[in-house]
Design a protein around this nucleic acid. Structure first.
Length: 217
DNA sequence: GAACCGATTGCCT
DNA sequence: GGCAATCGGTTCG
């Protein structure tokens, strides 16, 4: 499987990315599970600190509103989580274990408090900048994991609530994947398990392999 | 105002 | 494979 041509051979000066192509708010204003699946193959772009970083989204997780015990919105409404309760198409950034920022995309009508966690991306542009931010060699784990992804793209808590339709942070349409795998969300302990983790089948940039049972699905 | 928890990661054994 | 690091928000006293 070759790299999708989403960011190749463009007259744009940034190696092919173009904020004019950013997904409209209507894309996000849908069911959180649908958005989570449709984001696979799309191009995440950030222009932060003078560095352009872009990568294909290869893994996502859907988190519902108050009805989803695993969601931050289940028992919280104020603070950073307030972004989840806001309008769709905006970023919800939280700090995992006080260490790593994690980037979510708010979905559904305002007040739904649902969001999609971006768990992994396949670096396409700005690998050097990603590696520098990660403090790692430009190898294969630059953005494979929610914390790694956010750090690689320069995302911090200050980006919480930021609209995702214009610089410095936006998402462009990409090539829909041939096969999508499904599995239980990672690290979730509360409530009944939901198969709301989605990934591009057998993609090398996945944060972790999917359970065999999901591969057959 | 203090204690506790968490949608993680990297380093240690 | 196991566990410490680290911080914002919520909960409890």
């Amino acid at each position: 499987m070759r790299q999708p041509p989403a960011a190749s051979a463009s007259p744009s000066g940034d190696g092919g990315v173009d904020p004019a192509r950013a997904l409209p708010v209507t894309f996000y204003a849908r069911d959180v599970v649908a958005v989570a699946r449709d984001l696979l193959g799309c191009l995440l772009v950030s222009c932060i600190d003078g560095e352009t970083a872009a990568g294909i989204i290869v893994e996502t997780e859907a988190y519902g509103g108050p009805d989803d015990p695993a969601s931050h919105a289940a028992f919280r409404r104020n603070g950073t989580v307030a972004a989840m309760w806001g309008p769709p198409g905006r970023a919800y950034v939280y700090l995992a274990y006080g260490v790593y920022p994690c980037l979510n995309v708010v979905t559904g009508p305002a007040g739904t408090a649902a969001a999609v966690l971006l768990r992994a991306a396949d670096p396409l542009l700005g690998r050097a900048a990603m590696a520098a931010r990660r403090g790692a060699a430009p190898g294969r784990r630059l953005a494979s994991g929610p914390g790694r992804l956010a750090v690689a793209f320069g995302i911090t808590l200050t980006d919480n609530g930021r609209p995702l339709e214009a610089p410095p942070l936006w998402i462009e349409p990409g090539v829909p994947p041939d096969r999508i795998v499904t599995g239980p969300r990672i690290g979730v302990r509360r409530g009944e398990p939901r198969p709301w983790r989605f990934g591009i089948a057998a993609h090398p940039a996945l944060s972790r392999p999917f359970p065999p049972a999901a591969e057959r699905g």
